[in-house]
């Protein structure tokens, strides 16, 4: 279990906290969506939950980040990387620029961990299979479509074999088709038991994927509950988050006394 306990975080040089009073638990195998308007603190929460803040970017963290009940204070980021993976929004900025093929790019994390070549290749193959990129193993990482590049970023993190995966707006740089493809991979990961924390502006991506949804506003958690209940909550719109299209359609039909037929909307 990944746990944030009474967490508050302030960026270096900032006069105010970017996160306040965050209590969040991510159980093994759980999929939690994170929504909120711009500047709500979603990306900051992702950085804190992954351990990169403050370990890599500095700043002041109050409260605790715990993995299976043990605090992670003082753990270097490379140790946390083997337990908590993080994927960012822009696929291009996650490429190392140091590898010539997709396979080498995915293998970079295990290589950095000092694993043997055999173990590195085992993890790399598995990561590529989980994201459906085996056929692109020999491709130049710089010559991939947007969706493929983001799946490469996910692969590269999966090769570290983290138990928890944090994704900060993984579809924001993608078109609808690529976003669907990434969503399908995330669904498959969830069924395999990897726990996911997915920060998204596109609530459609989270609809049907998440067990729970947490809403942030101005650095505080304002909603936390079952996905359907939170995504349908009227206060979500009040903080500037649009509910998924399916729920909006259901609500509009319900106003007219109609119901959305099962299976009509995927």
């Amino acid at each position: 279990m990944l746990e944030l306990e009474a967490v508050a975080y302030r960026y270096p040089g900032s006069a105010r906290d970017a996160l306040r009073g965050i209590d969040l638990r991510l159980k093994d195998g759980e999929v939690v969506g994170l929504v909120g308007p711009s500047e709500a603190g979603k990306s900051t929460l992702c950085l804190v939950a992954s351990g990169l803040a403050p370990a890599s970017i500095g700043g002041t963290l109050r409260g605790r980040l715990l993995i299976d009940g043990a605090p992670t204070t003082g753990h270097p980021s490379h140790v946390l990387g083997g337990r908590i993976g993080i994927v960012f929004a822009d696929p291009a900025s996650q490429r190392s620029g140091m590898t010539g093929t997709v396979l080498e790019e995915v293998a970079l994390g295990p290589v950095n961990l000092g694993l043997s070549v055999e173990e590195t290749l085992r993890r790399t193959r598995r990561a590529l299979e989980r994201t459906g990129l085996e056929a692109l193993a020999g491709r130049d990482p710089g010559h991939l479509s947007g969706g493929e590049a983001q799946l490469l970023a996910i692969s590269a993190v999966l090769a570290m074999e983290p138990r928890h995966l944090i994704l900060d707006e993984p579809t924001s740089h993608l078109d609808a088709a690529a976003a669907r493809r990434v969503g399908d991979v995330l669904r498959a990961l969830a069924t395999e038991g990897t726990s996911l924390l997915i920060a998204e502006c596109r609530t459609d991506v989270l609809d049907g994927l998440c067990n729970r949804v947490v809403a942030l506003d101005a650095g505080r958690m304002v909603l936390d509950g079952a996905a359907r209940a939170v995504l349908a909550d009227s206060s979500l719109l009040a903080i500037g988050v649009e509910p998924p299209a399916r729920l909006r359609l259901e609500a509009a039909l319900a106003e007219r006394g109609l119901a959305l037929p099962d299976g009509l909307v995927a």
Partner: peptide
């Protein structure tokens, strides 16, 4: 500059900062 910052975070998350021997695949 923004890309450099993001890239260094992504590399940190992939244990780039670890000191010690490495066994590259190629």
């Amino acid at each position: 500059l923004a890309e450099v910052e993001q890239r260094s975070l992504a590399l940190d998350a992939r244990a780039f900062g670890r000191r010690g021997p490495r066994h590259p695949v190629w």
